[in-house]
Design a protein around this nucleic acid. Structure first.
Lengths: 154, 154
DNA sequence: TGGGATTATATGGGCGTCAATGGGTATATA
DNA sequence: TATATACCCATTGACGCCCATATAATCCCA
């Protein structure tokens, strides 16, 4: 399906390794399944990640901005300089860089949340809380999941 | 017909497998009859499911939202991280993830209720009760079934 | 149209494979 | 040399694939 879907909680071992959930590995681009890019989420205390293909798309978009604009500068700096390419070993595991781990307050376990075109890494409790709040907010505003899911596509 | 219709009660075996009713299997999209997506119903303690073909549409819609909006975040989280893609084996069975099973209080049996474009999984007694209540409510409010049933689609 | 034969569906169980995890050791880098 | 990281191997439990059976549905032909 090539989308990052559902949620998983995996352990970090003594060496700092975590398994990227198998379904997430499968969602990585065929061109490069041995590398992901990680960066601090702009919107929350979580880490975001995705395959290297997406980075190409993003850099194209930034490249289309006016070179002399503030936007170009801001995006270019905050995106490229903050991105951390990370290798996946033969068992499907990777290391979470210390700085990112601190940022997301992650210790022995990580929650993986599919976000479609990318995914997030959370300290499990914080992540689950956030997910519940999102759901509540949608319900409150009556933009129900079911509406989206059952809407007929034409 | 490609609609999920009528009701069935099937058993969950020792391994946790349940048969998706044969007519439901037939209602799955030709493009992918070996996978369904499951998610918690928002309105009730039941699980909802459908074929995978809508997922692309849904992700497009979400992708069209403003990435920096709260809505994007909420939808992305509530949809992508809560959707559970599930494989159907050659006998037409699938596993109900533990978390969903708990949510719907399902144990050894599941009631399948066709809902047209999707279907619901209920703990049998709760599901039957719910169906009776729906029916009573309809009659009470004089929105007779007959009205709906005779309103034919051109 | 009756009734046996064939097929489909729901269900049960064996077994191999894969995913997640743990740990030893080699290689690299500072 | 000390620290970090990659590769290799091992273990466990979950899951997928295969085969089997019983009951229900359908077919087909006399």
């Amino acid at each position: 399906m090539d989308l990052f879907l559902s949620s998983f909680i995996n352990k970090i071992d003594k060496k700092g390794r975590v398994s990227l959930p198998s379904t997430f590995r499968n969602a990585l681009p065929k061109s490069n399944k041995n590398e992901i890019i990680l960066y601090k989420s702009i919107k929350s205390d979580s880490i975001e990640g995705c395959g290297t293909e997406r980075l190409k798309e993003i850099s194209k978009r930034i490249n289309n901005l006016d070179y002399f604009s503030e936007d170009y500068d801001d995006f270019s700096t905050s995106v490229f300089s903050e991105i951390i390419p990370t290798n996946i070993d033969k068992e499907g595991r990777f290391l979470i860089p210390d700085e990112l781990k601190k940022y997301a307050k992650i210790q022995n376990e990580v929650a993986f949340f599919g976000q479609g075109f990318f995914f997030q890494l959370w300290e499990p409790k914080a992540g689950i809380l956030k997910r519940e709040e999102s759901r509540k907010r949608l319900l409150k505003e009556k933009k129900s999941l079911r509406t989206i899911l059952t809407q007929q596509n034409k």
